[in-house]
Computed example of a mutant assay.
Amino acid sequence: MNEADLPVETKSMSPAEAWRKLRQGNARFVEGSTDHPNQDAPRRHSLVDTQHPFAVIFGCSDSRLAAEIIFDVGLGDVFVVRTAGHVVDDAVLGSLEYSVALLKVPLIIVLGHDSCGAVTATMEAFETGQMPPGFIRDLVERITPSVITASRHGITDVNATVVEHVQQTTHRLVDASKVISAAVDSGETAVIGVTYRLAEGKAEMVSGFGAL
């Protein structure tokens, strides 16, 4: 499949168009009127040799935060990277750079959610001074700067701290990756932070870099 064969929505989609498409899908999800697009056999076969996702979603691994479902998209639509507490490491940065440099994805979303267990564990460790065992400690250490910043701003609520952590993560992606920052500066890609409300199913932008 070459570019001429691609659906119109995957050709040179702008960051604003990509975000609008995801917002529309999330609105359908909230309303209970999902379309379940691009989930049939023809779509599956069309993606055997190529992919052209219009967004990358870097989200928390929480089982309640299935990106394709909450944004009502299908196969080949979004490139998904997930870690507990959307913690950034070298593998995450490499995956996101791949999506920007090779797949030319116009939008990166950092997706957090309320009642996040990883953020809650970090807040508890910060308050008590006791770190969790094993590699959970690594997660907590990487989230701690966001918790400290939230605390300095007088934020003690876990959901408000999640918002701070999402905002901090969007900053880190742009600061840490020359590939991502160059794509943002050129206007080819935007990086936005989004929080998801478990009860309502609504995704809301809370930070961003690049034109939307």
Rank of each mutant, 00 (worst) to 15 (best):
V163A: 02
V88A: 07
A182P: 01
I155T: 09
K21Q: 08
A121G: 14
V30W: 01
T34K: 14
T149K: 13
V163H: 00
R43C: 09
G74N: 10
H113M: 03
A18V: 09
F29R: 02
T144G: 08
T120L: 05
S61K: 11
T122H: 08
K104E: 04
H113C: 06
E204H: 12
G210I: 08
H171V: 06
D89T: 10
A125Y: 14
D175N: 12
I57G: 06
V191S: 04
E164G: 06
A190S: 15
T189W: 07
T122L: 11
F209L: 14
T169F: 10
A84P: 01
D72I: 10
I143W: 14
A55K: 04
T195V: 09
P106Y: 02
V30K: 07
E164T: 03
I57E: 01
E204A: 11
R43D: 07
D40F: 06
F79I: 04
R20V: 00
M131I: 00
T195G: 01
T169D: 13
T195I: 03
D62T: 03
A27T: 06
S95C: 10
Q51S: 06
R44S: 05
T189I: 03
A91P: 00
A182Q: 10
L102S: 07
F54P: 00
F126W: 14
P145E: 09
V147K: 12
A118W: 06
L139V: 07
E17R: 15
V78Y: 04
N26L: 07
D175W: 00
A4R: 15
M123C: 06
A176Y: 09
V87T: 15
F71Y: 03
V163T: 12
G117N: 10
V8D: 06
S95N: 10
E141N: 10
D62I: 03
G210T: 11
P42W: 04
V81W: 02
R28I: 03
V110M: 08
H171F: 05
Q51N: 05
D40G: 08
I143V: 15
A66H: 10
N2F: 09
D138S: 09
S115V: 06
S146P: 13
F209R: 12
Q168V: 00
D185E: 15
L103D: 02
L102M: 08
V119C: 06
E3A: 13
R172A: 13
D138R: 05
E141V: 10
S14T: 15
K178Q: 08
L96M: 12
F58H: 05
A211V: 02
S14R: 12
V73H: 02
A190W: 01
D49S: 11
Q168L: 12
F79V: 04
G76W: 04
